[in-house]
C-alpha cells in the first residue's frame, strides 16, 4: 500500500470522485490558483480546469448558498471552508437551507453537497479561528457529520461523503494534514456511521474523534507502558450517523469508559454519547463515565497555554486512572 499524507488522501478522494462524476466540482476561498490555503486542492485546477475548481471571494454565505442551490438542481458540489470557524458566517445557509430543505419540501428535494475544511485548535491562532463545531452541525437533523483522524479514513470517508445524497460536513484538521498513513491504491469507501477500533483492549474503553484519537492512542500506549493497562480505543470517525453498537459492545466488555474530544464540554458530542451509554449499558458500568474535553474557555492564543487547554496525554491518563 502507498504511504501518503492525510492531505494527499483528501486530494485523491476528491480528484477520483471528480473523474468519476462530472457533476462533482469544488469551490471555496483559494482552492484553485492558490492550490488551497492548506494545499488540500493542490494540482486540481490544472487537472480539472476553472469550471470545476472555482476560487470564490470571501463570501461564505454566498458561495455556500450557491452550492446548495446547485445541489438542489442535481449537481454535487464540494464547498471548502478555509476553516470551519468561518462556517459560522454561513450558519443559516447550512442549517436552514441545506439541512432543512428536504424536510420543508416534504421530501421533494435533496441536497447532495459536501461542506469541508479544517476544524481544530492547537495551532496558536486564537479563539476566532479554533472552533470545532461538530456538535453544532450534528445537532441538526438532515446533516451528516464526519471527523476523520487518519489518511486511510480521510480518503474512504470523503469519497463516501461525495457519493452521499444528503448534505455531509467533513471536519478535517490542519495538524493532521501532514500525518502519513497507508492508503490502498484501489477504489474504496468507508461507510459513514462505522466506528473503528484503533486499539483493542480489555480494561477501559476510550472513545474519541478527530485529532483526539491520535492523542488518546498515545495516552493508551503510555497507560500500557506505565501501568500495564490495556485500553480499547474507539475512533468514532462519524458523529452523525453514530456507531452506537461498537461503543456499547466495548463498554460491555471493559465496563469503564472515558470520552475524549477537543471540543468544549457543554453540549458537546460526548455529552450525547455519555447519555447513550448510561441509557443502554447502565448495568455494565463499574465506574462513572469519565470525560476529557478542551478546558471550558474560549481558545487561548498563547502557545504553551493552548497545549494545556486541549486534551493531552497527561490529562487523558489522569482521567483514565481516576475511573480504573
Amino acid at each position: 500500500m502507498a504511504v501518503i499524507t492525510y492531505r494527499e488522501a483528501l486530494n485523491q478522494a476528491m480528484s477520483e470522485e471528480m473523474d468519476r462524476d462530472e457533476r462533482v466540482f469544488i469551490m471555496g476561498e483559494e482552492v484553485a490558483q492558490y492550490h488551497g490555503a492548506y494545499k488540500v486542492t493542490q494540482g486540481m485546477l490544472e487537472r480539472f480546469g476553472p469550471k470545476r475548481v472555482i476560487d470564490t471571494p470571501i463570501s461564505e454565505t454566498g458561495f455556500s448558498g450557491i452550492g446548495i442551490g446547485a445541489a438542489m438542481m442535481g449537481l454535487r458540489p464540494i464547498v471548502e471552508f478555509m476553516t470551519w470557524s468561518f462556517s459560522y458566517v454561513a450558519f443559516d445557509q447550512i442549517i436552514n437551507n441545506a439541512a432543512n430543505m428536504r424536510y420543508m419540501s416534504g421530501g421533494l428535494i435533496n441536497v447532495p453537497i459536501v461542506f469541508r475544511g479544517a476544524a481544530n485548535g492547537g495551532v496558536n491562532v486564537g479563539a476566532t479561528h479554533s472552533h470545532t463545531p461538530e456538535n453544532f452541525y450534528a445537532n441538526a437533523p438532515g446533516l451528516k457529520v464526519i471527523c476523520p483522524a487518519t489518511a486511510y479514513d480521510a480518503k474512504g470517508l470523503m469519497k463516501a461523503a461525495i457519493r452521499d445524497n444528503d448534505p455531509v460536513c467533513v471536519l478535517e484538521n490542519t495538524i493532521l494534514y501532514n500525518d502519513k498513513g497507508e492508503v490502498p491504491e484501489e477504489d474504496y469507501t468507508i461507510p459513514l456511521g462505522k466506528a473503528d477500533i484503533k486499539r483493542p483492549g480489555k480494561d477501559i474503553t476510550i472513545v474519541a474523534h478527530g485529532r483526539a484519537v491520535i492523542t488518546a492512542l498515545q495516552a493508551a500506549e503510555e497507560l500500557k507502558a506505565e501501568h500495564g493497562i490495556e485500553a480499547e480505543l474507539i475512533d468514532l470517525r462519524s458523529i452523525r450517523p453514530l456507531d452506537e453498537e461498537t461503543i456499547l459492545e466495548s463498554v460491555k466488555k471493559t465496563n469503564r469508559v472515558l470520552l475524549v474530544e477537543e471540543n468544549k464540554p457543554f453540549c458537546g458530542v460526548d455529552a450525547q454519547i455519555a447519555f447513550i451509554i448510561q441509557d443502554k449499558a447502565f448495568d455494565h458500568l463499574d465506574a462513572p463515565i469519565g470525560r476529557v474535553s478542551a478546558i471550558d474557555a474560549p481558545q487561548i492564543y498563547s502557545m504553551p497555554l493552548e497545549k494545556i487547554q486541549l486534551p493531552n496525554t497527561d490529562r487523558i491518563k489522569r482521567a483514565a486512572l481516576k475511573i480504573l
Binding site: F25, K51, T61, G62, F63, S64, G65, I66, G67, I68, G69, A70, A71, M72, M73, G74, L75, D92, Q93, N96, N97
Partner: peptide, 15 residues
C-alpha cells in the same frame, strides 16, 4: 437567504 440559492440554481443551469 433564498438569493444565494437563486444564484446557485443559475450556476447549475449554466454548468
Amino acid at each position: 437567504a433564498q438569493t444565494p440559492l437563486g444564484a446557485g440554481i443559475a450556476f447549475a443551469l449554466k454548468y
